[in-house]
Nucleic acid binder design. Structure first.
Lengths: 333, 333
DNA sequence: TCTCTGGATGAAAACCTTTTCAGAAGGTAT
DNA sequence: ATACCTTCTGAAAAGGTTTTCATCCAGAGA
């Protein structure tokens, strides 16, 4: 491997000068610059990133923390982040966290050993020790899809409760009175969306009946399917269901068709997120759209600006969610 | 940040000794080892990974090259790789490549500057210069879902042609004679699956009619949708369609339902891949399953073993695909 | 002619590890 | 007592870069 020394020798200058050329410092004669650049090109030399990181004590790498079994919504989110991070000259290092203490501990160790320049969370951690470490170290950070009041980190998210309310409101306005809820465990957005559901009910004087709520262990289609099945089994009158994520909704629709029920004729279903695939289900899923792409961009910008300015720039970035009408909701007459 | 020197000073030994303890070398008194370990724990010290990579000239990092707009199949694949790589003590660095020369060049530069220990491709590159560079450098590598005869790299994949043949054969055996094909551009698997389609037709004495084939610019649902629409437009008699990927098939089903056609009553659809979501479409997608998880594991193992033994271990790993029967294919009577 | 100024350059230190080599201490065989 | 192992330890070099500091040189002003 050719090093900066080789280039220096070949160009008849010192390594310092080559470094200056490569990093576009001033104080180097145009003639010398050209000679160096020519040799660099000729030799196909590129800076050794490891050595560079070591001396500069920064890695030009942003960590992105994401659940190991990330869903399609999170996938689109991190694709968007990666795109903007790359655009600004940063590499992205993904950390896929499992839902275990061991996994979080391993992550903390890597965090300490790895010289990241910043970090974005798309995954809400229960254990505060990691957030605490980040705060103490003053590492630039952004939270995406949730917030942590206690730490005051910049957070990028929609108004979860209001968005859920929007979905249920949509159902109520179309004449639905007996509305089921499929939600999941863990993560504040689950609770918040549940609260939004209750608030919408309350706003219209509808009673909250616990039998119409089912709580499943994950936010994926399979969980949505079993959730819908148990809801059906309880035999409470039901004309519509709000699933707190699109993936749950997709599973719910599957369960309904398995049970010989038609969507939306026999049962309306509404989701929340608007992931890509929701436009391709049968029937097309009516849902509430999070501006995924923009949220990814904003998160990336937030850490990059923090790094550039040396201190935190914004606090919270609230995005608004909007209804996407497709075919999974019927108007009752 | 505490360094190995701080630990050494605190423990009253030299940095060399601390290093020996940390790397579990022999020749250090049990008593000293314990003292050092205690201080390490007390100080929460972890080795600086960058410095370590520099002196060892390896990064314990494997690169995974994947299309920027990776599909759900590739997503499951790389999740599986990441899992096994992590298990063997490697970090994973993802490279999301866009479909452009600039993107490939940028990747090559990073490849040169980054000291990766190995690399896995889930993305077939047209330009041979990258493969050539890897070969010259002797970098451990594995190809997943395709192969490159000229380079002799280890490759993990199914028999593409035979798998496609299996799908079409399934259709033929259920009485279908007029079978459409939706395939995409780029990537050898598209061509190979197309060949499999033709071979199945030929094996049963059925004519190949170009009007029943449509080639779309991508392998995603939207492309599948437009593909199906043009197929329908051509008004050739058709009772079944083979989409070369599940995502295409999902889009095709959507197009059919938009056109008022029922699957499988009016048209049968079969895919290939068996991605997670295929079990949740309506109707459930009949498809051909690639053993995604195992293929990811095998790819990871291949590079890890290459690294461990210092030279290439296997050449090609062929996996077999199997039919997954769901509800999107009807038997003609 | 002498001093000053400012641009251009190189030598060397620093970043944090690992590893080689040499040496010390203690034991054993001659 | 000497020579020779073993086991353990530390000093120093090495890895590839950036940056500080010192030096050199040319031109300007006195």
């Amino acid at each position: 491997m050719t090093s900066i020394k080789d280039i220096a020798r070949l160009a008849g200058v010192s390594p310092s000068t080559v470094s200056r050329v490569l990093n576009e410092r001033e104080y180097v004669r145009a003639e010398v610059r050209k000679r160096v650049l020519d040799i660099v090109k000729e030799q196909g030399y590129v800076q050794n990133h490891v050595a560079r990181s070591m001396v500069l004590r920064r890695s030009f790498t942003i960590g992105v923390v994401i659940p190991y079994l990330f869903n399609m919504f999170q996938r689109q989110l991190f694709a968007s982040m990666e795109f903007f991070l790359e655009q600004q000259g940063y590499k992205t290092q993904f950390f896929f966290l499992r839902w275990s203490d061991a996994s979080e501990q391993a992550f903390l160790r890597r965090l300490k050993s790895e010289t990241l320049d910043g970090i974005i969370f798309i995954h809400e951690l229960d254990n505060p020790s990691i957030y605490r470490y980040i705060q103490e170290r003053g590492l630039p950070v952004a939270l995406c899809t949730f917030e942590k009041q206690e730490f005051g980190f910049p957070a990028v998210h929609i108004e979860e409760e209001a968005s859920a309310e929007l979905a249920v409101e949509y159902l109520i306005q179309r004449g639905h009175r007996n509305i089921g809820l499929i939600t999941g465990e863990h993560f504040s957005f689950g609770r918040q969306r549940e609260d939004g559901y209750k608030r919408a009910l309350a706003a219209h004087g509808l009673p909250y009946t616990p039998e119409r709520t089912v709580r499943v262990p994950a936010y994926n289609p399979e969980a949505g399917r079993t959730g819908m099945l148990t809801l059906l089994q309880r035999k409470k009158p039901l004309t519509a269901v709000f699933a707190v994520t699109d993936e749950l909704a997709i599973g719910a629709i599957k369960a309904l068709s398995e049970s010989g029920l038609k969507v939306p004729e026999d049962m309306s279903v509404i989701g929340l997120d608007d992931i890509d695939i929701s436009a391709f289900t049968n029937p097309g899923l009516t849902t509430v759209r999070q501006p995924i792409f923009e949220m990814g961009k904003k998160s990336a910008d937030l850490v990059c600006e923090w790094i550039a300015h040396g201190r935190m720039q914004g606090r919270a970035e609230l995005f608004t969610a909007t209804i996407v009408e497709r075919e999974s909701v019927r108007t009752l007459t």
